[in-house]
Design a protein around this nucleic acid. Sequence first.
DNA 1: GTCAAACTTTTGACTCACCGAAACATCCGC
DNA 2: GCGGATGTTTCGGTGAGTCAAAAGTTTGAC
Lengths: 225, 225
Amino acid sequence: MLPSSTVENYLKAIYTGVAGLVPPQRLLPMGQLAAALTVAPGTATTMVKALHESGLVEYEPYAGVRLSAAGDKLAALVLRRHRLIEAFLVQVMGLRWDEVHDDAELLEHVVSDRLVQRMDEMLGHPTVDPHGDPIPDAEGVLHAPALPDLLQCPVGVPLTVTRVLDQDGGFLRFLEQQQLKPGETITVEQRDTAADCVALRTAGDRQLTIGARAASKLLVRPQEP
Amino acid sequence: MLPSSTVENYLKAIYTGVAGLVPPQRLLPMGQLAAALTVAPGTATTMVKALHESGLVEYEPYAGVRLSAAGDKLAALVLRRHRLIEAFLVQVMGLRWDEVHDDAELLEHVVSDRLVQRMDEMLGHPTVDPHGDPIPDAEGVLHAPALPDLLQCPVGVPLTVTRVLDQDGGFLRFLEQQQLKPGETITVEQRDTAADCVALRTAGDRQLTIGARAASKLLVRPQEP
DNA sequence: GTCAAACTTTTGACTCACCGAAACATCCGC
DNA sequence: GCGGATGTTTCGGTGAGTCAAAAGTTTGAC
């Protein structure tokens, strides 16, 4: 099976879906896969069975699906293309970080190896895209540091915003406006479980409070000495 | 009908096919269209009838097909994307002019208007691509100067190579090696109809002879003063 | 004028990716 | 350990794009 766009999208969804469920070898339920791809459940079942025939996934009826080694590599290379394209669109072409996701989603299925390699060179072999998402290497291996989000990180110490787990344009623009883009320095001042929110102080010494939901989408790295 | 890749390719083939047959309103025979798209003749008939239903082409059974005004505009915009992409890949990304055609062929169906516009800006609103092919403007209008080829141009005067009517990598590499790329200056020294060839002198004062077939693919502009 | 060659259209069938609805599993509450 | 609620699979059907081969049309040679 030569991997069509559709196949690539299924693999990518399983790849990132499994990343969401903590243990990396857990099975992804079909319902979640179908929802991620916005297709009917039956469609996902049919496709997954075909992927299983091709040896790209392991599939257990009524249990779920997981990538095989071959599928994992393919998915990682799709993700590599996606993230290199996002970095390219932002850093070389000067587009905004909140408007490149959809373009990358289409281009990732179409760019040749030559183009990917050239973008990688022009960008100086980056390890993360503009959202801080790690870029798998050319062999399809992902080097992803385990980072705490704003609900788990230490309080009262300076942190560097490192990764954003949401591609929604509105959310990204909000972050930019509030100086919460990757690279910015912030401090968690207080966490209020009952009120379901987190109080922050940003670079310009400005203070703001965000909900737990949003806080969980911001990953940070405690700063060195 | 939202124009799929397939539709865009049919329109483009009719657009450039009609350009090949001199009078711009002549009908393109189905056989030629099918051949250009490497598709069975019956497939082309079916598709052309659908395009006719959508008002993108005029179709006369057993005679051929021609673009409607709407189809012409759509086709021109596809060609605009294609040629801007080729220019971008060469001038911004540093790829060779003989290896960008296939990438552009895929990307042209996928790049957003935003990307096209950005490429156009970055390139300074170019009017031709790296092969000298004219780029339709954003309204889908093509400004194409009528240029003579090496079989029709004046002999013994300096000429600027302006356009190459062939995307074959081997041919393009040959031109580059022989200093026959667009922009180079050459002179036609002699034309030999019987021997079916043309003798040239290139910039470095080197001499070479090429066949009439190849000569007809090089368009030139006589130099001023 | 006829007829065969060359071209075009029609027909029937196939693949891919998808949907909706009916049938089927699983698992949890009690 | 029964009965749903929930999730999953199966089944029949659709539209796009394609092919191969049969049927039809044009055209030019003679």
